[in-house]
């Protein structure tokens, strides 16, 4: 089944900020808060839209500060949604 990998997420994150040179996602980012990685609340919403454009999933805008607080939380959350979608 479809899964969001860390590399896929990196790509969605870079797309969401126009491949900005100041954004470095090559380090160990899994547990870094989105804000520390240079993603404010609108940028995180934009990441959610990029994920939706590529995966059969609808990401609610509510509580993104929790559901997508870090890349690890984001992967767990999105892959959970993808699994639910398959189950449904």
């Amino acid at each position: 089944m479809t899964q969001l990998t860390l590399d896929d997420l990196r790509e969605c994150m870079l797309l969401a900020v126009g491949y900005d040179e100041s954004i470095d996602l090559e380090q160990d980012i899994l547990d870094e808060p989105m804000g520390d990685l240079g993603f404010d609340s609108l940028a995180v919403m934009n990441v959610a839209r990029e994920i939706e454009a590529r995966y059969p999933v609808k990401v609610p805008d509510e509580s993104l500060d929790e559901t997508m607080a870090t890349p690890r939380r984001t992967l767990e959350y999105i892959n959970g949604l993808l699994e639910e979608g398959v189950a449904a």
Binding site: V17, G18, D20, E21, S22, I23, G38, L42, A43
Partner: peptide, 8 residues
């Protein structure tokens, strides 16, 4: 203009 601002 940096990429992130072009998007915005």
């Amino acid at each position: 203009v940096p990429g992130r601002l072009i998007v915005q």
